[in-house]
Design a protein around this nucleic acid. Structure first.
Lengths: 196, 196
DNA sequence: CCTATTCTGGACGAGACGGTCAAGAATCGG
DNA sequence: CCGATTCTTGACCGTCTCGTCCAGAATAGG
């Protein structure tokens, strides 16, 4: 019983995410978030708690979505594993390259700004990095079984390196590196993978 | 003529840098900076301008120092170029790994927070990344002349990749990756460099 | 239709923040 | 020693910001 909500939670979270994403956590104003979502502050606080809780919710959702997106791109039969890995790495480079407004990845931005002071953010970042690394590692193992990557390579170590390259591309992209150089990095990394 | 300054500019900038570094730009309070430096706010504003100018000064100095530090580690005769490169990559990994408070690199933190909205920060970041990449590239070229890296490799592309790996290690470190995994990434990257 | 309950919107308050200013202290040239 | 000049301090101002609160609107059950 009682009045029912007049807003769509997903839309509100998306609009709030945009605010945090473009300005960072500290510089995002609750009034701006309210204006962007079209909600009054009372509704915002009633539905999501304070600014910090709202950010955590958005950050967690974003990371979960990121992991799912990577899983969709990398999971699959051994036969196409190498191609999927290759496509994924190039896709990240292209996405970063075409991110004109330099917002980069919310995971990277949030981690950079808050992980030193906010254990919840740090923990989510750790879990997300670990999950993505594991997905890459599985994909590499699949590519090894399919004979597209040398058998004697350690998939975990290669996955760690590739993850670092991906995060590095993202970091350089935020610095404004040229699209071509970002793509070159991705291609160079792929070219150095030990193939049979 | 007139009263002379009673503070050391370098010490003040260092203390202010610590504040920006641990909290980020937006969350750093001018009062805290004044307290940390021991200066009254009037002196701070008189000597360095407003908060934004102060940050830009610190950010620029930091980036210039970073470039110089990398130059000192990488410059030298061709004979030891590969070893210097190797030592540098491992040093970055170790430094990141032992950064307990997860502050990371001020360049990365400042770029993540501000480059999308502050062209001056973005420009400094671009220049710094380009300078470091150039230093790595020269070092690789030296290692090639010394016969420690395959002649047919493109030093610029390898340098771009290594820079991305370094920035990625830095990003993962801020997420709290274990010291061992960071070192493993550095070693894996070095192991994949094409050697004769 | 009525009432209990929930949601909405925005005015409000308390405090924090960036930046200024004036009054006094220190220093230098003469 | 003195005046001109620069530096220092921290109180102060206007503004901004988070979070609360309340009066009213909407809804579900009876």
């Amino acid at each position: 019983m009682g009045r029912s909500r007049s807003f769509d939670e997903g839309q509100v979270l998306a609009a709030a995410k945009d605010q945090f994403w473009s300005t960072g956590y500290a510089a995002a104003r609750v009034d701006d978030i309210a204006a962007a979502t079209g909600l009054g502050k009372g509704s915002l606080y009633g539905a999501f708690g304070d600014k910090h809780q709202l950010f955590l919710r958005i950050f967690d959702d974003y990371c979960a979505g990121l992991i799912e997106a990577v899983r969709r791109e990398l999971d699959g039969p051994d036969a196409g594993a190498y191609d999927r890995l290759r496509a994924h790495v190039l896709k990240v480079a292209n996405a970063t390259a075409s991110d004109v407004c330099l917002r980069g990845c919310l995971l990277a931005k949030g981690t950079a700004e808050l992980s030193g002071q906010d254990e919840a953010v740090a923990a989510t970042a750790r879990r997300t990095f670990a999950a993505i690394e594991e997905l890459i590692s599985s994909c590499i193992a699949g590519a090894q079984r399919a004979g597209d990557i040398k058998q004697d390579a350690d998939p975990a170590r290669l996955a760690g390196l590739l993850l670092a390259v991906l995060r590095g591309i993202e970091a350089l992209g935020k610095g404004g590196s040229s699209p071509d150089s970002l793509r070159a990095i991705a291609e160079t990394a792929l070219a150095l993978l030990p193939r049979p």
